[in-house]
């Protein structure tokens, strides 16, 4: 499988390579897969992003993958009666549940601060809301805690110096999605910089969806929850009776 993918990739790269000769100022990219299916044996996925660009010496490539937005609750624990318990919580909404940034060198060296802010090339420029009215006065530690924990769970990740550029025309990057990734549409943005200015960009999408038995179980549990509960009990009853039946004969 691996070698086959590599072979196909090589052919594509060669094709793209000859293509770029004709298509000046262009950025051409593709993904090895555009859908990721969370089946019952899912344990994370690797997607290969590859592309060709019409580059010059010292050009840069930045890749940003962003998932769907959702609500995240940050809990703070304090020691009370000798036990660590949750004493305060802040709910953030409009939080990207997945955000991944990769580049060929340090982003600060690639472009300026206003561009970083505009394109959201770090984790400090999301338009978040929270349930505390005085957002402006909200202690910074809450956002820092959110950032730290999202990074720890690999939901937010930055890998500078991880994209290898080849002869100013080719690049490739493996996007590793963690096993606990949430479902939805993911945006993949590929940005091509020259001397700090964005000269071309490409966008594609990855669809992450539950499939097979795993998806069916989830759907039944959500939509027909009482029936699901009864089925769960019947399955357990059956197995209880069945083992008794088997072991009585042995």
């Amino acid at each position: 499988m691996r070698t086959l993918i590599k072979k196909i990739l090589l052919i594509i790269i060669i094709a793209l390579n000859s293509f770029t000769v004709f298509a000046k100022d262009n950025l051409v990219t593709d993904l090895s897969e555009s859908t990721v299916e969370i089946s019952s044996t899912f344990s994370g996925a690797d997607i290969l992003l590859f592309g060709a660009y019409d580059g010059q010496k010292n050009d840069d490539i930045i890749v940003v993958v962003s998932g769907q937005k959702g609500n995240i609750k940050v809990d703070k624990k304090e020691k009370k009666f000798g036990i660590w318990m949750i004493t305060e919580s802040v709910k953030f909404s409009n939080v990207p549940k997945y955000y991944y940034i990769a580049s060929n060198r340090k982003i600060e060296e690639i472009t300026n601060k206003s561009e970083i802010k505009k394109r959201k090339l770090d984790f400090n420029n999301f338009e978040l809301k929270n349930n505390k009215i005085d957002y402006k006065n909200l202690d910074k530690k809450w956002y820092e805690a959110l950032k730290r924990n999202m990074k720890k769970k690999q939901f937010w990740k930055i890998e500078e110096n991880s994209i290898k550029l080849n002869k100013n025309t080719l690049f490739r990057k493996t996007l590793s999605l963690p096993s606990n990734v949430s479902t939805g549409m993911y945006d993949v943005k590929i940005l091509h910089y020259r001397k700090g200015n964005l000269i071309s960009q490409e966008e594609s999408k990855i669809k992450i969806d539950k499939t097979g038995i795993s998806a069916n179980i989830y759907n039944v549990a959500q939509n027909f929850s009482a029936i699901y509960g009864i089925i769960a009990v019947i399955v357990a009853l059956f197995f209880g009776w069945f083992t008794n039946f088997i072991f009585r004969r042995i």
Partner: peptide, 13 residues
């Protein structure tokens, strides 16, 4: 009773 590695934790809701 032991001090958590991080006194803040997150959960998707």
């Amino acid at each position: 009773v032991t001090i958590p590695l991080d006194i803040f934790s997150i959960s998707i809701i």
